[in-house]
Structures are given as structure tokens and as C-alpha cells.
Design a binder for these strands. Sequence first.
DNA 1: CATGAATGAGATTTCATTCAT
DNA 2: AATGAATGAAATCTCATTCAT
Lengths: 201, 201, 201, 201
Amino acid sequence: MTATTPAEPGGRRGETRRKVYRAAVELIAEQGFTATTVDAIAERAGVAKGTVFYNFGSKEGLFSSLLAHGVGQLTDALSGAAAAAPRPGVAALDAVVLAQLRFFDEYGPFARVLVAEMWRTAWQEVVAGLREGALGVYQGVLDEAVAAGELREGLDTGTAATAIFGMVLTVAIERRALHPEQPLEEVHATLAGLIHGRITG
Amino acid sequence: MTATTPAEPGGRRGETRRKVYRAAVELIAEQGFTATTVDAIAERAGVAKGTVFYNFGSKEGLFSSLLAHGVGQLTDALSGAAAAAPRPGVAALDAVVLAQLRFFDEYGPFARVLVAEMWRTAWQEVVAGLREGALGVYQGVLDEAVAAGELREGLDTGTAATAIFGMVLTVAIERRALHPEQPLEEVHATLAGLIHGRITG
Amino acid sequence: MTATTPAEPGGRRGETRRKVYRAAVELIAEQGFTATTVDAIAERAGVAKGTVFYNFGSKEGLFSSLLAHGVGQLTDALSGAAAAAPRPGVAALDAVVLAQLRFFDEYGPFARVLVAEMWRTAWQEVVAGLREGALGVYQGVLDEAVAAGELREGLDTGTAATAIFGMVLTVAIERRALHPEQPLEEVHATLAGLIHGRITG
Amino acid sequence: MTATTPAEPGGRRGETRRKVYRAAVELIAEQGFTATTVDAIAERAGVAKGTVFYNFGSKEGLFSSLLAHGVGQLTDALSGAAAAAPRPGVAALDAVVLAQLRFFDEYGPFARVLVAEMWRTAWQEVVAGLREGALGVYQGVLDEAVAAGELREGLDTGTAATAIFGMVLTVAIERRALHPEQPLEEVHATLAGLIHGRITG
DNA sequence: CATGAATGAGATTTCATTCAT
DNA sequence: AATGAATGAAATCTCATTCAT
């Protein structure tokens, strides 16, 4: 079994991987990506340093596995919200925006890791997954809204999806860093207003 | 003259600083801050490694100087656009968005550096400058629009400013990376539509 | 049964040992002893890493066992050829040279291992075995030739044995690596000519 | 200047490289190739560990540079002996054999390194150099001897060159390891006898 | 008999920084 | 004002070996 093959979740190896994972996420939350050493991760996980390499092959391997996992969770959160929305179209869009806000509220460090490390060529694959996953959910919802006549025919839904995703991402990071006390609902209301045009009186 | 004193722009030292700036921005955009070595910066700039330290004191010093410089230029570009707009309010907002798109179209690597490194606690000072500068321009324009009755009373213009800035930043990066042939005006139209509510038919 | 006790050749254990032997010889021939990892040996042999240690105790143990095994086979091949020669002396010498060429033709990787690792102080015991075995055969044949008056009285048969052994070993490796198509008989004729003085017209 | 570019011999860097070189050769002589750590080399050379990497790029780089250097010296020694021989042909061959014996007598550790590490794919280039260099000298001398009628027409001088080189190499290593007190001249006499056919009475 | 996850000592390598020139 | 060789602390990574299953 190679170093990067995930083990069966229940076994001894799966347990180790989970411990290392959790330790890595916590430390990134505290100190950022590259400032986190494998030594520190191993110590916090309560395993030997070699064990990290045995299970993930390299520091890069660990982090790319981590990123992929986070992107997957984000995509799940967004598509879940889209599916659970009472009605498609703009109402679903609001739900997805709220889901994204909540996700980054809960996994704030992940948002920072995402924007800070997205550009490393080593992880282009992960970023591509983000595009197909999270941005895809946005674009799907927007396409439905266009089809339903809620948004104007001919809207560039690709660009609009990126725009909304980036808007929410930026606001979520800023809120966490500077106004953590501000209620999420308030922020959501402001963004929803911006997006579906009720910014004007 | 200390290491961090900027030299007169025309001299030999000013030229050296400019070469190092450009090399650093490009490399950091490609690989991120920590993955970029001073060796690589010096080599791409065509100077000796010692020269980087002679001029900027440290790697962090180079980077924060670089960020401050870029943020200053960005602020100038945005406030220039706001001031030159025929009318204040929403019209001015469109002009500022266009100016931001154009700025990042010209200085693409800087946009990536900004988005990637903006949130590191180490550089809070720079981020504060960004907030007072670029985000301030947005907030000022939005405040004027509220005062003029173009936007609804009570709008959280701080959050809205961050939202629009992040939206434009994200779209600018994505366009440069994936659709460089798409006309800037088209992108601008989509964003303007989103922002002032003409997204709906 | 201790880890270093050889098992009966036919059993499950004998089979495992043989697979590991073969894998180890090949890899060490390709990369050298220290560059070859137990991981790689186990993988190529198709067994678990623990199995190598269970059977051979240590990496060194595997290797010295492997060398001893190979040296024993080589000795058998050479002494068999000497015994089977129609006449003793120079004719027997030719037969032994041919046998050595044939042996290394069949077990090429072992020749490389031998030449590469023979001189390491760690394995003096094995080298002593080689000297008593394979070199002993050469020296015995040479002594007989001296006794028979075919070679001059006073010849340093120890040095001569080493010289001829090294010559054949080197040529065998070179042939395998660079001229595998060259008939063994041709090479043998050149060497035989060199050795018993018919190099001159 | 890249890490592998040799510096001008007189400068500061050249001096450092020479110190590291010398330390590396000494340590290899004592402990063998892979058992020698960069730490130990740096300490004996009296430089920081980083300096070794600054100058040679990697441990492999250091050793391959070392090997190439040794092969060059060996080639020079052999071709020098061939050129200085009073007469070409078999007399020159004797001189080359003596030169090879002397070289490995003086640089014994190098001979061991050579045979032990020749097979690493990283150094195939070096080995190719050996073939063209040292073996080339032997073949040239043999060809001349054939042309002069001293050796029989049609002799496979390529194989013969390899054979003689390997013979001398093996004997030189063996002598150094087991009979260092034996006079070089005696060994040379035995080999010379073997080679030009006076092995028989 | 065989396994393979875990280990940790010890190796190689990186790179921001200094300083004599 | 610029250089680049040298540094060394700190990082990443390797791998023979152990041991519970």
C-alpha cells in the first residue's frame, strides 16, 4: 500500500491519519501553513515524526490531502444548501451564500489557507476541484434562475459565480479577522441585498 | 541613508529597487511568499543577493515595502477614478470598479500577491493601509450614494465595500488566469449589473 | 529455529528466502548496497518488509548470507570445472576461466555485487571464503601447472590467481553491460590467449 | 555562478572547495563512501555544513565531482606513462601497468570507491569517462603493439584492454588490503610475466 | 510464518542573513 | 552602492528495525 492511499477508516492506520489530520488543521489555524512544522504536527498528534511521512509521503502531500478534503467539504456544504432550498433560483442563491458564510465561519482557518496557498502550482489540481465543485454549484443555481426568468437572459453566469464566491469569501475572512461579533445574519442580509438588486431603495 | 529609506526614483538605487520589486512580485505571485527565496528574487532581478538585503533590510522588509507601494498605487488609481467621475454615487461606483479591474489587469501578479498574503497577521499594518485606502474609496462612494438617496438608508457600507472589492479582485484574477481574451468591458458590465441590481430583467 | 538458520530448501520458508535473494541481488547490482532499501527489496520480492527481517535478521545479515551463498555456488562451479578437466595444469586453467565466464554470464548481477562490495571491511569473512574457495581453485590449478613444469618455477601463484580471477570478473561484467551479443567463446579465446602467453604471434 | 561551476583556483571559493575536497577524500579513505556524512566532511574541512552544499550542490554532487577528478588523474597517469615509455608496444604496456599499480597504491581508497560506486546510474557519465580515458590508453598501446607485429594480428584489443585493467585493479586492491608489505615491483613482475606470455617457463 | 504500521535516530537539504571585499 | 561566499539554525526526509496482530 503506498503512502498516499487512504486506509480503511476503521483500522489502526486510519486512526493515525485522523490524528495527524486534526493536529495539522489546528496548527494551521494558529500559525499558518508554512510556519507549521512537521515536528509540531507530530508532537501534537502524539505520533512520531516518521509516522507523518509514512502516512502522507511528504509535508506537501499532507497539506494537499488536507486541502482536497476541505474543498470537498465546502462543495458538499454548498450543494447541500442548494438542494435543500425551498425554491430554486434566487432563493437558492441566498441559501448557498449563507452556507458559504457559515462554512467559513466554522472553518475560518481553512479559508485563509485556501486563499493563501491556492496559487502553488503543486495544488492546481485542488484549485481545479474548487472551480468545478463550489463554483459549479453557484453557476448551476444562477443558470436555473436565468431559466426561471428571475435573472436576465444572457447573464454571464460563469463570471457572476466567481464574483459572488469571491465576495463572500472576502467578507467572511474580513469578518472573522475584524468583526467577529457581528451577527452572521446581518452580513448575509447585506450581501443578499447587494446580489439581488435591492441595494437601491 | 538607512536601508529602508527610499532613494530618489531616478538614481541608480531607485533603479535597483524597481528591478527587485518586479522580480519579487512575479515570483511571489507564482509561488507564494514563503516558497519564494531571496536567491530566486535576486537572480530574476539580475542583482546579487546581498543587494536585496542592502536595499530592503530583510525579506519581510522587502515584502511589506512592496505591499505598501502597491496598495498606495491602487488607492491612487481608485480615488482618481472616483474624483474624475462625472457624478457621485452609483455612477462613481461603476467608475471605481472599472478602475480596479484595469489596475489588476495591468498589475496582475500584484493582485495574486494581495489576495494571498493580505490576511497574514504579520502584515496587519499593510492591510490597515489597504482598508483606509482602497476600501475607504469604496466606502466613501457608497456613503455618498446613500446620502444621495440612491442606495437605501442603513446600508452597511463597510461590509458592502469589502464585498465589492473582494468580488472585483477575485474576478480579475480568474479572468487573467482563465479567460484573458474576454474583454474587460464585458466583465465590467456583468459586475455593474450585479452590483446595482439590474441583474434581474 | 533462529532467524539465521537456513530452512529446508523445499518449504515455504525456503521459497521466501529465494525470492528475497533474487530481489536483493538484482537491486544491489543496480544501485549498490547502501542505496538499496529493505523496502525496495521486499517490494520486488513481493513480500512484506517484516518478512525480510524475520528470515534474515538484518539487512547486513541478508547481504552476507547472500554473498556466502553466491560465493559457495561460484566455488562449486569452478572446482567442478577443474575436476572435470581432462588434464590438470594449463588445460584445467582454461576450463576454470570458461566456467567463471559462464557463471557470471548466468548470474550477472551477482558479479556486480561481488566486485562492488567485496572489499568492504564489514564483509571480510565472506571475502576470506572467496579466497579460500574460488581463488583457491585457481591457485590449486596454477600450483599443479607449476609442479607439472608447465609454468615457471617460483611463480607467485597467489597473486596470479587473484589477477586471473579479477581479469575474468571485469571482462564478464563489461561484456554483459556493453557487448552482450559477443559470443562467450570468443571472449574466452582472447583471455586464454592472454593468459598462457599466446598473445604474441 | 552556479553551485557546480568551479571557481578560479586562487580565490576564496577555490580554497574552500579544495579544503572540502581533501576532507572528503580522507574520510572516504577511512570509512567508505556512503558511511561518510556531510557533517563529518564539513567538520574535518573546518567549514560549516552549509558551505559544502553551497559549493557542491549536494552530497552526490560532491562525490561525482570527486570521482570525475580521480578518473581524470588516473587517465593522466596512464597516458603519461605510455608517452614516456622508451619504446611503444609491449614495453609501453608494461609501463602503463606499473603506472596503474602505482596510482592505486597511492590512491588506494579511490580504487575502492571506484569499484564500489561505479554502478550508480547517477555516475554513468563518470564511468564512461573511465572507459574512454584509462581503458582507451590501454587499447591504444595494444593497438600499437599489434601494428608493430608484437601481438598477433586480429587480437580483440578492446576486450584485452578491459582484461588487463581489471586484473591490475583487482590485484592492487588485494595487495593493499592483504599484503601491503609486498614490493610493488614483485607484483608488477608477476603481472608482466602473465601478460606477455612468459608465464610459461 | 508472515505482516505492515509505527518508530526515531540520524541523515540531507534549505535559506535568510552577515560581512569582508 | 553592490557583491557573493560563507554560515548555521532549523527544516524536511530516510530507512533499518521493532512488534502487536
